[in-house]
Design a protein around this nucleic acid. Structure first.
Lengths: 194, 194
DNA sequence: GTGTACATGTAATCCGTTACATGATTCC
DNA sequence: GGAATCATGTAACGGATTACATGTACAC
């Protein structure tokens, strides 16, 4: 039993199970991938299975096989012990957010890139922000106004704000890159915007 | 030689060495810890040493021991090959940012917490944001206006925007939590602000 | 009949952390 | 004299990924 051998990712999965539905590993991953992933990097499929095994070994979840047509699908549920463990974990001091922003690393090392290369990378990031915003809006739509999803709406709203800010910063970055390039704004037809 | 066995963290260190100074592992970690860490989680000390060994084995860095008083300190420098490898990596498609936001995971699972506990966690996060903003301002101050740090200033500026947005969102979260609590705004003397 | 989503896993490997160990230097 | 910082590492472990392997169900 010793200590608390459950990782944050384990608790995240346990958290998804805390909505009291029985879910397969695949479904858990799906859910993590399209709603959690905005603020918490979704684990690989294989890790979900590994994590579920550990959770079950620790008695925090249980599982059973249910027939799904011809096949057997294993569905998981949280146990009373799991609910207690999760509650205790949630009350512990929170670590600061962990970020690995690969684009900004490139910007930081911009002296090793052509301004055009850097600009393209930032613009790609901008497109990614737009795509994330679109799926967040779709998510908010799906959540409706059921009280069960009140907190889910809060984090989705946070996501919208976060990605909007990211988008503003990226736009500002493009402008700064244009202004700061050797010899002022870029020539060659990339700067003229409407 | 096979493929590209260097991790993003390895490239990050290589990037720090691309400013053409010879640095010890300790100094690299220091630098990563107080300027890179705003957008790229700083690795543990022990990983820095491990990464430096790999880089040297791959011929991307070189090192030598220099006397520092009585002791020998090992300093590292980037090689021509390292500069080429870094340049090539920087031009590759950029992965989206990776985030693990432990606070938001708590918010998402807010149905398992007392509103007061959740509120306290968000307020703790708010204090963390303030502290980060303060050190970012100090950093921007240190950077001065030397052209060498032009890109460093850009990412520091991004950091200020990012943490300001984070702060706004956290404040909004506190308000939403107050409003949304069962029975309206919290009683018991925590809601009345100024 | 082909591709995509559903569904579950194993193997190998690596990324990264914590804990431990050691010692010099500098500040109070 | 003691604490904090500088400085470098090793050992053990666990977290997480990629690549591989397998097969079903369903839509076009």
């Amino acid at each position: 039993m010793r200590q608390d051998r459950t990782s944050p990712t384990g608790y995240a999965l346990l958290g998804l199970l805390s909505f009291e539905r029985e879910l397969s590993g695949y479904e858990l991953r799906q859910w993590a991938g399209n709603s959690l992933h905005f603020f918490y990097a979704a684990p690989a499929m294989s890790q979900v299975y590994a994590e579920l095994e550990r959770l079950e070994a620790a008695g925090l979840t249980g599982s059973r096989e249910v027939p799904q047509g011809v096949r057997q699908v294993r569905v998981h549920r949280i146990t009373a012990k799991g609910r207690r463990a999760l509650g205790a974990w949630l009350r512990r001091p929170v670590d600061p957010p962990q970020l690995k922003h690969h684009l900004l690393l490139r910007v930081f090392l911009g002296h090793l890139l052509e301004p055009e290369d850097l600009r393209r990378a930032v613009e790609e990031h901008l497109r990614w922000c737009e795509a994330e915003l679109a799926s967040l809006r779709a998510l908010l739509d799906d959540l409706g106004d059921d009280p069960v999803w009140a907190h889910a709406r809060l984090v989705a709203q946070w996501g919208v704000e976060h990605h909007s800010a990211e988008r503003s910063s990226a736009r500002r970055l493009v402008r700064a890159l244009d202004d700061g390039s050797p010899g002022g704004p870029r020539s060659a037809g990339t700067t003229v915007r409407a």
